[in-house]
Design a binder for these strands. Structure first.
Lengths: 148, 148
DNA sequence: GTTTCATGTAACTTTATATGTTACGAGTCG
DNA sequence: CGACTCGTAACATATAAAGTTACATGAAAC
Protein backbone atom coordinates (compact mmCIF):
# COMPACT_ATOMS: atom_id res chain seq x y z
CA UNK A 1 0.00 0.00 0.00
CA UNK A 2 2.49 2.56 1.16
CA UNK A 3 4.89 1.57 -1.59
CA UNK A 4 2.24 1.74 -4.28
CA UNK A 5 1.21 5.23 -3.29
CA UNK A 6 4.81 6.23 -3.26
CA UNK A 7 5.23 5.02 -6.82
CA UNK A 8 2.05 6.71 -7.97
CA UNK A 9 3.07 10.07 -6.62
CA UNK A 10 6.48 9.83 -8.19
CA UNK A 11 4.81 8.98 -11.48
CA UNK A 12 2.56 11.98 -11.13
CA UNK A 13 5.56 14.23 -10.55
CA UNK A 14 7.14 12.94 -13.74
CA UNK A 15 5.93 13.83 -17.22
CA UNK A 16 7.31 10.88 -19.18
CA UNK A 17 6.51 7.24 -18.49
CA UNK A 18 8.72 5.59 -15.90
CA UNK A 19 10.09 2.11 -16.44
CA UNK A 20 9.73 -0.72 -13.97
CA UNK A 21 13.47 -0.72 -13.62
CA UNK A 22 13.70 2.92 -12.54
CA UNK A 23 10.82 2.50 -10.12
CA UNK A 24 12.33 -0.69 -8.75
CA UNK A 25 15.62 1.04 -8.04
CA UNK A 26 13.83 3.79 -6.19
CA UNK A 27 11.81 1.33 -4.13
CA UNK A 28 14.84 -0.89 -3.62
CA UNK A 29 13.19 -3.90 -5.15
CA UNK A 30 12.94 -5.81 -8.39
CA UNK A 31 11.31 -4.68 -11.67
CA UNK A 32 9.15 -7.78 -11.72
CA UNK A 33 7.82 -6.95 -8.28
CA UNK A 34 6.83 -3.52 -9.55
CA UNK A 35 5.02 -5.03 -12.51
CA UNK A 36 3.23 -7.49 -10.28
CA UNK A 37 1.98 -4.76 -7.97
CA UNK A 38 1.02 -2.42 -10.80
CA UNK A 39 -0.94 -5.13 -12.59
CA UNK A 40 -3.92 -4.56 -10.32
CA UNK A 41 -3.83 -0.82 -10.84
CA UNK A 42 -3.62 -1.26 -14.59
CA UNK A 43 -6.66 -3.53 -14.64
CA UNK A 44 -8.53 -0.96 -12.60
CA UNK A 45 -7.54 1.68 -15.14
CA UNK A 46 -5.57 3.83 -12.73
CA UNK A 47 -2.30 3.48 -14.61
CA UNK A 48 -1.25 2.62 -18.12
CA UNK A 49 1.77 0.69 -19.32
CA UNK A 50 3.48 0.93 -22.68
CA UNK A 51 6.10 -1.28 -24.19
CA UNK A 52 9.13 -0.46 -26.26
CA UNK A 53 11.28 2.63 -26.47
CA UNK A 54 10.07 5.42 -24.25
CA UNK A 55 7.62 3.03 -22.66
CA UNK A 56 6.87 2.43 -19.02
CA UNK A 57 4.21 3.37 -16.51
CA UNK A 58 2.11 6.50 -16.41
CA UNK A 59 -0.98 7.75 -14.62
CA UNK A 60 -4.22 7.05 -16.46
CA UNK A 61 -6.81 8.51 -14.14
CA UNK A 62 -7.97 11.73 -12.56
CA UNK A 63 -6.18 11.86 -9.24
CA UNK A 64 -9.05 13.81 -7.76
CA UNK A 65 -11.42 10.90 -8.47
CA UNK A 66 -9.39 8.09 -6.94
CA UNK A 67 -9.13 7.53 -3.20
CA UNK A 68 -6.74 5.46 -1.18
CA UNK A 69 -9.59 3.06 -0.66
CA UNK A 70 -9.87 2.60 -4.42
CA UNK A 71 -6.18 1.79 -4.54
CA UNK A 72 -6.56 -0.69 -1.74
CA UNK A 73 -9.32 -2.45 -3.59
CA UNK A 74 -7.37 -2.44 -6.84
CA UNK A 75 -4.63 -4.27 -4.97
CA UNK A 76 -7.06 -7.05 -4.19
CA UNK A 77 -8.46 -5.61 -1.00
CA UNK A 78 -6.24 -7.55 1.38
CA UNK A 79 -7.27 -7.68 5.01
CA UNK A 80 -6.32 -4.52 6.86
CA UNK A 81 -6.25 -6.22 10.25
CA UNK A 82 -3.46 -8.41 11.46
CA UNK A 83 -5.62 -10.82 13.43
CA UNK A 84 -8.76 -12.66 12.52
CA UNK A 85 -11.21 -15.11 13.96
CA UNK A 86 -10.55 -18.76 14.19
CA UNK A 87 -13.28 -20.88 12.69
CA UNK A 88 -11.91 -24.30 13.42
CA UNK A 89 -14.73 -25.31 15.70
CA UNK A 90 -17.79 -23.27 14.72
CA UNK A 91 -19.93 -25.63 16.75
CA UNK A 92 -18.17 -24.65 19.96
CA UNK A 93 -20.23 -22.15 21.90
CA UNK A 94 -17.11 -20.65 23.42
CA UNK A 95 -15.81 -19.95 19.97
CA UNK A 96 -19.08 -18.38 18.97
CA UNK A 97 -18.99 -16.06 21.96
CA UNK A 98 -15.37 -15.08 21.32
CA UNK A 99 -15.92 -14.51 17.66
CA UNK A 100 -19.02 -12.44 18.23
CA UNK A 101 -17.09 -10.06 20.45
CA UNK A 102 -14.02 -9.86 18.28
CA UNK A 103 -15.89 -9.59 15.03
CA UNK A 104 -17.76 -6.57 16.21
CA UNK A 105 -14.63 -4.76 17.32
CA UNK A 106 -12.73 -5.71 14.19
CA UNK A 107 -15.50 -4.77 11.83
CA UNK A 108 -15.86 -1.38 13.41
CA UNK A 109 -12.15 -0.67 13.17
CA UNK A 110 -11.97 -1.88 9.60
CA UNK A 111 -14.97 0.19 8.61
CA UNK A 112 -13.42 3.28 10.14
CA UNK A 113 -10.16 2.66 8.36
CA UNK A 114 -11.88 2.15 5.00
CA UNK A 115 -13.85 5.31 5.56
CA UNK A 116 -10.70 7.28 6.26
CA UNK A 117 -8.95 5.83 3.24
CA UNK A 118 -12.00 6.70 1.16
CA UNK A 119 -11.73 10.28 2.28
CA UNK A 120 -8.25 10.83 0.92
CA UNK A 121 -7.77 11.24 -2.82
CA UNK A 122 -4.53 10.79 -4.67
CA UNK A 123 -4.83 14.46 -5.59
CA UNK A 124 -4.82 15.37 -1.92
CA UNK A 125 -1.66 13.37 -1.42
CA UNK A 126 -0.04 15.00 -4.44
CA UNK A 127 -1.00 18.42 -3.14
CA UNK A 128 0.51 17.65 0.25
CA UNK A 129 3.67 16.56 -1.47
CA UNK A 130 3.89 19.77 -3.48
CA UNK A 131 3.37 21.76 -0.32
CA UNK A 132 6.27 20.03 1.33
CA UNK A 133 8.32 20.57 -1.78
CA UNK A 134 7.61 24.29 -1.79
CA UNK A 135 8.38 24.54 1.90
CA UNK A 136 11.76 22.98 1.40
CA UNK A 137 12.57 24.63 -1.91
CA UNK A 138 14.72 23.13 -4.63
CA UNK A 139 13.73 20.59 -7.25
CA UNK A 140 12.40 17.13 -6.67
CA UNK A 141 14.84 14.43 -7.66
CA UNK A 142 13.59 10.97 -7.01
CA UNK A 143 16.94 9.32 -7.45
CA UNK A 144 18.59 11.52 -4.86
CA UNK A 145 15.81 11.16 -2.34
CA UNK A 146 16.13 7.39 -2.61
CA UNK A 147 19.89 7.16 -2.72
CA UNK A 148 20.51 6.22 0.90
CA UNK B 1 -5.80 -13.70 20.31
CA UNK B 2 -8.90 -15.59 19.35
CA UNK B 3 -7.32 -18.86 20.41
CA UNK B 4 -6.16 -17.51 23.74
CA UNK B 5 -9.60 -16.23 24.63
CA UNK B 6 -11.03 -19.56 23.63
CA UNK B 7 -8.69 -21.35 26.00
CA UNK B 8 -9.41 -18.93 28.83
CA UNK B 9 -13.14 -19.40 28.57
CA UNK B 10 -12.82 -23.15 28.51
CA UNK B 11 -10.65 -22.92 31.60
CA UNK B 12 -13.24 -20.78 33.30
CA UNK B 13 -15.94 -23.34 32.52
CA UNK B 14 -13.84 -26.04 34.12
CA UNK B 15 -13.24 -26.35 37.85
CA UNK B 16 -10.02 -28.35 37.85
CA UNK B 17 -6.78 -27.22 36.20
CA UNK B 18 -6.47 -28.17 32.54
CA UNK B 19 -3.26 -29.57 31.17
CA UNK B 20 -1.46 -28.20 28.14
CA UNK B 21 -2.09 -31.48 26.43
CA UNK B 22 -5.86 -31.34 26.81
CA UNK B 23 -5.94 -27.72 25.70
CA UNK B 24 -3.68 -28.47 22.77
CA UNK B 25 -5.97 -31.23 21.57
CA UNK B 26 -8.94 -28.93 21.73
CA UNK B 27 -7.14 -26.20 19.84
CA UNK B 28 -5.65 -28.70 17.42
CA UNK B 29 -2.11 -27.73 18.22
CA UNK B 30 0.84 -28.77 20.31
CA UNK B 31 1.18 -28.63 24.12
CA UNK B 32 4.37 -26.61 23.82
CA UNK B 33 2.58 -24.03 21.73
CA UNK B 34 -0.03 -23.71 24.46
CA UNK B 35 2.66 -23.21 27.08
CA UNK B 36 4.38 -20.62 24.94
CA UNK B 37 1.23 -18.61 24.50
CA UNK B 38 0.18 -18.92 28.13
CA UNK B 39 3.57 -17.79 29.37
CA UNK B 40 2.66 -14.16 28.77
CA UNK B 41 -0.62 -14.53 30.59
CA UNK B 42 1.08 -16.21 33.51
CA UNK B 43 3.61 -13.41 33.85
CA UNK B 44 0.76 -10.93 33.79
CA UNK B 45 -0.91 -12.89 36.59
CA UNK B 46 -4.03 -13.79 34.65
CA UNK B 47 -3.46 -17.54 34.84
CA UNK B 48 -1.57 -19.89 37.10
CA UNK B 49 0.22 -23.11 36.23
CA UNK B 50 0.95 -26.04 38.49
CA UNK B 51 3.16 -29.01 37.94
CA UNK B 52 2.71 -32.62 38.85
CA UNK B 53 -0.38 -34.72 39.39
CA UNK B 54 -3.57 -32.77 39.03
CA UNK B 55 -1.59 -29.86 37.72
CA UNK B 56 -2.21 -27.69 34.69
CA UNK B 57 -3.59 -24.28 33.95
CA UNK B 58 -6.23 -22.35 35.85
CA UNK B 59 -7.60 -18.84 35.98
CA UNK B 60 -5.85 -16.58 38.49
CA UNK B 61 -7.68 -13.32 38.07
CA UNK B 62 -11.06 -11.69 38.40
CA UNK B 63 -12.61 -12.02 34.96
CA UNK B 64 -14.54 -8.82 35.55
CA UNK B 65 -11.30 -6.89 35.93
CA UNK B 66 -9.53 -8.07 32.80
CA UNK B 67 -10.38 -6.79 29.33
CA UNK B 68 -9.51 -8.11 25.92
CA UNK B 69 -7.09 -5.24 25.65
CA UNK B 70 -5.28 -6.48 28.75
CA UNK B 71 -4.98 -9.90 27.14
CA UNK B 72 -3.67 -8.37 23.96
CA UNK B 73 -0.99 -6.54 25.89
CA UNK B 74 -0.08 -9.63 27.90
CA UNK B 75 0.56 -11.35 24.59
CA UNK B 76 3.16 -8.75 23.75
CA UNK B 77 0.86 -6.21 22.15
CA UNK B 78 1.48 -7.23 18.56
CA UNK B 79 0.40 -4.84 15.85
CA UNK B 80 -3.30 -5.03 15.16
CA UNK B 81 -2.99 -3.69 11.61
CA UNK B 82 -1.79 -5.72 8.69
CA UNK B 83 -0.04 -2.91 6.87
CA UNK B 84 2.39 -0.30 8.03
CA UNK B 85 4.40 2.59 6.71
CA UNK B 86 7.58 2.15 4.80
CA UNK B 87 10.47 4.14 6.21
CA UNK B 88 13.12 3.23 3.74
CA UNK B 89 13.57 6.74 2.43
CA UNK B 90 12.49 9.13 5.18
CA UNK B 91 14.17 11.95 3.31
CA UNK B 92 11.83 11.54 0.35
CA UNK B 93 9.07 14.13 0.47
CA UNK B 94 6.70 11.79 -1.33
CA UNK B 95 7.18 9.26 1.39
CA UNK B 96 6.57 11.86 4.03
CA UNK B 97 3.30 12.86 2.42
CA UNK B 98 2.16 9.27 2.04
CA UNK B 99 3.10 8.33 5.56
CA UNK B 100 1.40 11.36 7.04
CA UNK B 101 -1.89 10.40 5.43
CA UNK B 102 -1.66 6.71 6.21
CA UNK B 103 -0.42 7.15 9.75
CA UNK B 104 -3.39 9.26 10.65
CA UNK B 105 -5.87 6.74 9.30
CA UNK B 106 -4.08 3.80 10.86
CA UNK B 107 -3.67 5.40 14.24
CA UNK B 108 -7.34 6.26 14.40
CA UNK B 109 -8.38 2.74 13.51
CA UNK B 110 -5.97 1.19 15.97
CA UNK B 111 -7.11 3.50 18.74
CA UNK B 112 -10.72 2.60 18.07
CA UNK B 113 -9.93 -1.09 18.12
CA UNK B 114 -8.02 -0.84 21.38
CA UNK B 115 -10.86 1.12 22.89
CA UNK B 116 -13.34 -1.54 21.89
CA UNK B 117 -11.15 -4.32 23.20
CA UNK B 118 -10.78 -2.38 26.42
CA UNK B 119 -14.55 -2.28 26.74
CA UNK B 120 -15.02 -6.01 26.79
CA UNK B 121 -14.13 -7.97 29.91
CA UNK B 122 -13.50 -11.68 30.08
CA UNK B 123 -16.50 -11.84 32.37
CA UNK B 124 -18.67 -10.40 29.62
CA UNK B 125 -17.44 -13.06 27.24
CA UNK B 126 -18.06 -15.79 29.78
CA UNK B 127 -21.54 -14.46 30.37
CA UNK B 128 -22.27 -14.48 26.66
CA UNK B 129 -21.06 -18.05 26.48
CA UNK B 130 -23.33 -19.11 29.33
CA UNK B 131 -26.23 -17.41 27.63
CA UNK B 132 -25.61 -19.36 24.46
CA UNK B 133 -25.28 -22.51 26.53
CA UNK B 134 -28.61 -21.94 28.22
CA UNK B 135 -30.27 -21.15 24.91
CA UNK B 136 -29.12 -24.40 23.45
CA UNK B 137 -29.53 -26.50 26.55
CA UNK B 138 -27.48 -29.53 27.45
CA UNK B 139 -24.07 -29.65 29.05
CA UNK B 140 -20.89 -28.12 27.77
CA UNK B 141 -18.37 -30.69 26.62
CA UNK B 142 -15.24 -29.21 25.25
CA UNK B 143 -14.00 -32.43 23.72
CA UNK B 144 -17.18 -32.93 21.74
CA UNK B 145 -17.37 -29.36 20.52
CA UNK B 146 -13.84 -29.68 19.22
CA UNK B 147 -14.08 -33.15 17.83
CA UNK B 148 -14.39 -32.23 14.16
C1' DG C 1 12.19 -42.39 47.78
C1' DT C 2 10.76 -43.77 43.44
C1' DT C 3 7.49 -43.38 39.89
C1' DT C 4 4.34 -40.71 37.32
C1' DC C 5 2.66 -36.57 35.80
C1' DA C 6 3.01 -31.87 34.32
C1' DT C 7 5.21 -27.50 33.30
C1' DG C 8 9.58 -24.52 31.48
C1' DT C 9 12.46 -23.84 27.99
C1' DA C 10 15.98 -24.37 24.59
C1' DA C 11 16.95 -26.07 20.12
C1' DC C 12 15.59 -27.75 15.98
C1' DT C 13 12.32 -28.77 12.03
C1' DT C 14 8.53 -27.86 9.32
C1' DT C 15 5.31 -24.93 6.97
C1' DA C 16 3.41 -20.84 5.00
C1' DT C 17 3.87 -16.52 2.96
C1' DA C 18 6.03 -12.76 0.91
C1' DT C 19 9.65 -11.33 -1.74
C1' DG C 20 13.19 -11.67 -5.07
C1' DT C 21 15.10 -13.74 -9.39
C1' DT C 22 15.53 -15.85 -13.87
C1' DA C 23 13.78 -16.74 -18.26
C1' DC C 24 11.39 -15.98 -22.16
C1' DG C 25 7.41 -14.42 -24.99
C1' DA C 26 5.24 -10.42 -27.07
C1' DG C 27 4.52 -5.79 -28.41
C1' DT C 28 6.74 -1.10 -29.74
C1' DC C 29 9.82 2.20 -31.44
C1' DG C 30 13.74 3.72 -34.11
C1' DC D 1 16.18 -5.88 -37.76
C1' DG D 2 17.67 -4.54 -33.10
C1' DA D 3 17.16 -2.27 -28.81
C1' DC D 4 13.83 -1.66 -25.40
C1' DT D 5 10.01 -2.69 -22.18
C1' DC D 6 6.15 -4.97 -20.33
C1' DG D 7 3.60 -9.76 -19.08
C1' DT D 8 3.97 -13.78 -16.87
C1' DA D 9 5.28 -18.26 -15.51
C1' DA D 10 8.48 -20.79 -12.92
C1' DC D 11 11.80 -21.07 -9.64
C1' DA D 12 14.70 -19.47 -5.55
C1' DT D 13 15.31 -17.13 -1.25
C1' DA D 14 14.13 -15.03 3.12
C1' DT D 15 11.36 -14.46 6.95
C1' DA D 16 8.22 -15.56 10.43
C1' DA D 17 4.92 -18.60 12.47
C1' DA D 18 3.91 -23.04 14.04
C1' DG D 19 5.11 -27.54 15.28
C1' DT D 20 8.34 -30.96 17.33
C1' DT D 21 11.83 -33.08 20.17
C1' DA D 22 14.41 -33.32 24.21
C1' DC D 23 15.39 -32.79 28.71
C1' DA D 24 15.49 -30.35 33.19
C1' DT D 25 12.50 -29.05 37.15
C1' DG D 26 8.94 -29.47 40.44
C1' DA D 27 4.79 -31.86 42.64
C1' DA D 28 1.67 -35.47 43.84
C1' DA D 29 0.74 -40.52 44.36
C1' DC D 30 2.17 -44.75 46.02
Amino acid sequence: MSGVLHVLLHMDAHDAPMTSEVLARAMQTNPVVIRRIMAGLREAGYVRSEKGHGGGWSIACDLKAVTLRDIHEALGGPSLLAIGNRTEAPGCLVEQAVNAALTQAFDEAEALLLERLGGVTLAALAKDFKKRLAARGGPHEMEKAHAG
